[in-house]
Design a protein around this nucleic acid. Structure first.
Lengths: 333, 333
DNA sequence: GTGAAAGCGCTAACAC
DNA sequence: GTGTTAGCGCTTTCAC
């Protein structure tokens, strides 16, 4: 690869002048500029971003760390962040952690994160203390499901509120035996699953109902095929189910398929509500009633918090919980 | 951030020795090693990967460049590549290039790719001349839809074969008025849309049928809502349709929703086949018959080609077209 | 075993 | 307007 030096030699000026031209800085005569650009073209010069980053101390790049790209919620999040960054000419790269603690630890090695100007971090498997050890002096915003260490900025979804909204809606529409697909019986669980289960419970209690613990179908890997199988088994076992709150839309899609396999009609026999408002959810038959996690707000707030850090202001840590809303479609009456 | 120099000072050795310890090189006495590691711990030293990359000329990272992360096909591709790389402990980042309207590979994003040891580049939507301008001396494999310049390794999907398979299947199952959702009437179109349309045509011809040009529904943005609207309009206009080959599963999902909106039953009134075999397609009601693009093979071959380049062997350029297969589900009879 | 010197490619700061 | 100098943090080379 040709370097600035090569271009300088070819056009008979100094490296610095080439740098000035390449970076569009003023105070370069039109003649020189043309000569330099000609040499750039001829040699096929490309700026070496590694060298620029080392020198400048900034890379102009932000990283978004997500568990898996094929998890549609995170894929849609990634696209939303990219879109939000584009107008400002900033660049995003996506790091995948593989939804495991080990993966997070390696992908998020301090050394790697240092390459970025800032990091938006979706934490799933890492332990609290591991997250806590992350350099607090680098611009970092947690997109957490669960409550994370106090010294780091964090934007959380309205997990509890959304689950509550979803379950209350099912109750309002007449469901009385509401399973939670992907819920937990473990009260110590404080992650996404724990909070959404808590919302499911709370909505029951508020309506004067007692949540049926048999209808807590434990989380698998949030995969459609597993959820499909799980709900089929539950129905086959004779559990009384006339409503399902699925902790994610992916799970909900599996549940819908499984109910259909059992010959049950949605919403006539069983009503279903999901969580995530995936793009596909609007186009299922019937359309999936779901909780909109307001990814737009999550992105907006995350970038606001990150920008504060990037601008170097020494500001207060913020922990935000975003509002959610219910999108009612055909899977509920 | 502390540097090698700081650690060297703190432990009373030279920078070089610290580097040797940090990189686990031999020929360092046990006593020195311990002393250095103690200083590393104390100062919280982290290697600066930018500096290392600049000096070493390698970053240890591979990039996968895709148009958008929320395009499920690419999201699933990204996850598949990551999974394939994980056992070897190699690192992948996802770059989104194609999301911009014009000039997908701007000078800057080209330079960005140089930061990586190797790049898997999805060239959907890129213009031929853009691709031709790509530095051919960097390890690069094109994941192309259309035939690309000869000097670059390329792995292509079986676009023509898949479309042919899908359409022939519809014909075999009795469809005689087969629309192509996302097809083109422009014979000069050589991209994914062109090749899949060519497959649709060829299957007609082989069966002694004449493809109905009115049933070529032009490509929009491969979004579900647009396709839904499009098929509704086509049906409302009274076009005779008893089968639809959708150029992607996303389009197919929109088509299914649109047909349902019109009160048409699938597969009884209209049969549908998609292309991509997305994870969600198996769990729709009815399940979507679709072309499996064999992403597993695409990934395997791409990485093989990339590894050849990475190992520096000066090898023959390869252009591969992967086989496809049809997955028959409920949207066809 | 350990260290000194050179330089990867770039740009900030300053001189002319 | 243009050039010179210095140095970002690291590793390669070679001397001791």
């Amino acid at each position: 690869m040709p370097t600035l030096k090569d271009v300088a030699k070819a056009s008979g000026v100094s490296v610095m002048t080439v740098s000035n031209v390449v970076n569009g800085r003023p105070r370069v005569s039109e003649a020189t500029r043309r000569r330099v650009l000609a040499a750039v073209d001829e040699l096929g010069y490309q700026v070496n971003l590694t060298a620029r980053s080392l020198r400048a101390g900034r890379s102009g790049t932000i990283a978004l760390s997500i568990p898996r790209a094929d998890h549609p919620y995170f894929a849609e999040l990634a696209a939303a962040v990219t879109d939000a960054l584009r107008p400002a000419g900033r660049h995003l790269v996506i790091e995948q952690t593989g939804a495991s603690r080990e993966g997070e630890l390696s992908a998020l090695s301090q050394a790697r994160l240092q390459m970025y100007d800032g990091v938006l971090l979706s934490v799933v498997g890492m332990h609290d203390d591991e997250v806590a050890r992350l350099q607090s002096d680098m611009p970092l915003v947690l997109l957490g499901e669960k409550r994370m260490p106090d010294h780091l900025d964090q934007v959380m979804l309205g997990n509890f509120d959304g689950a509550h909204l979803a379950t209350a809606h099912l109750i309002a529409r007449g469901a009385r035996h509401i399973a939670i697909a992907g819920g937990t019986r473990d009260p110590a669980e404080t992650g996404m699953v724990g909070m959404r289960t808590a919302g499911w419970r709370a909505a029951h209690v508020e309506a004067g109902l007692v949540p049926d613990e048999r209808l807590v179908l434990p989380p698998l890997h949030f995969e459609m095929s597993e959820s499909r199988e799980q709900i089929r088994t539950a129905v086959a076992e004779g559990l009384p189910i006339d409503g399902v709150f699925a902790v994610t839309d992916q799970v909900a899609i599996g549940v819908m398929a499984g109910l259909h396999d059992c010959g049950l009609r949605i919403p006539d026999d069983v009503q279903v509500v999901g969580f995530d408002n995936l793009a596909v959810s609007a186009h299922l038959t019937p359309g999936l009633t779901t909780v909109d996690p307001r990814t737009d707000l999550v992105v907006e707030e995350s970038l606001r918090l990150l920008d504060r850090r990037l601008s170097g202001d020494d500001v207060q840590v913020e922990h935000l919980v975003m509002p959610v809303r219910l999108v009612v479609r055909g899977t509920t009456r």
